[in-house]
């Protein structure tokens, strides 16, 4: 298929940037979206032009690196997939595809489609872990009884790959689905309960500090999340945060 791509080009963090049109031809419908971008970049390199910078790593939907906003949606029009899992069969010959970086004040553009998502790392550092002595006397985690329901819910929350699609999709650029998932995956397990009060308070404080917007429950994040992280995690974080503040 032949396509017209409208791509955000920005030379660096301080460059103003603009949308630039490109034509690509003979794109197979079996290609992934990133493979189509590879074709474009090869074309640009052959023409002596600067290739489009974009994040990618595993290309199998688990690393959370790819981060494009395609035709007005994070990771494009398909559901439950990252950009690397998005196939060109979702588009048709002659389509005009708009490709932009994830936009949020807390995700500044580094170059073209690459954004700095280290704000997520700082939120994780604020409490997204459990403190365990790993000197060799650590108890086997499987020795602690955990209900199937709690284990499933914790696992569902833990599937968040921190790609930032929730922030990109939210009209308020809120990070509450990401933080809700990270809070939930520990709050649901006995190992995580020990530091639950400090965790939720510190992670929410860091989230607010990073300049993300406030959640207004539109639900866009849940729909666009490639891992299907549920809004229930935000509700759980809200409960955890209230009880943490009451206990304090």
């Amino acid at each position: 298929m032949n396509l017209t791509l409208k791509i955000w080009r920005q030379k660096g963090p301080k460059d103003k940037g603009s949308m630039v049109d490109y034509k690509v031809s003979d794109i197979s419908e079996h290609m992934s979206f990133l493979e189509m971008m590879d074709v474009l970049n090869e074309q640009l390199i052959n023409e002596g032009k600067e290739p489009v910078a974009f994040d990618h790593d595993c290309r199998e939907g688990i690393c959370g690196s790819c981060s494009m906003f395609i035709n007005g949606e994070a990771h494009g029009p398909d559901r439950g997939v990252t950009t690397c899992q998005l196939h060109m069969r979702m588009f048709k010959d002659g389509d005009v595809i708009t490709i932009e970086p994830f936009r949020a004040k807390a995700f500044p553009v580094i170059k073209d489609l690459v954004v700095d998502r280290s704000s997520f790392d700082r939120i994780q550092h604020a409490g997204g872990y459990i403190s365990v002595n790993t000197s060799g006397n650590t108890q086997d985690a499987n020795a602690i009884p955990i209900s199937k329901h709690a284990a499933d819910e914790a696992m569902d929350a833990a599937t968040c790959i921190g790609c930032g699609a929730c922030v990109a999709s939210c009209k308020n650029a809120s990070a509450m689905l990401f933080v809700g998932a990270k809070v939930s995956q520990y709050a649901l397990l006995p190992q995580g309960r020990i530091e639950a009060v400090d965790r939720v308070k510190n992670m929410v404080a860091q989230m607010d500090l990073e300049g993300f917007g406030n959640c207004t429950n539109t639900g866009a994040c849940e729909v666009e999340c490639p891992k299907g992280i549920s809004l229930e995690n935000i509700a759980r974080m809200n409960r955890e945060y209230l009880f943490a503040n009451i206990k304090d």
Binding site: K6, W8, M19, F69, N71, G72, E73, P77, T98, E100, R103, A104, K105, A106, S169, K171, N172, A173, S174, G211, F212, G213, T218, G219, A220, V223, E224
Partner: peptide, 16 residues
């Protein structure tokens, strides 16, 4: 203010 630059194309109706 949490999104300094808005999207050129934003399909909000697809998700909310």
């Amino acid at each position: 203010s949490a999104r300094v630059k808005s999207y050129a194309r934003n399909n909000g109706g697809a998700n909310s």
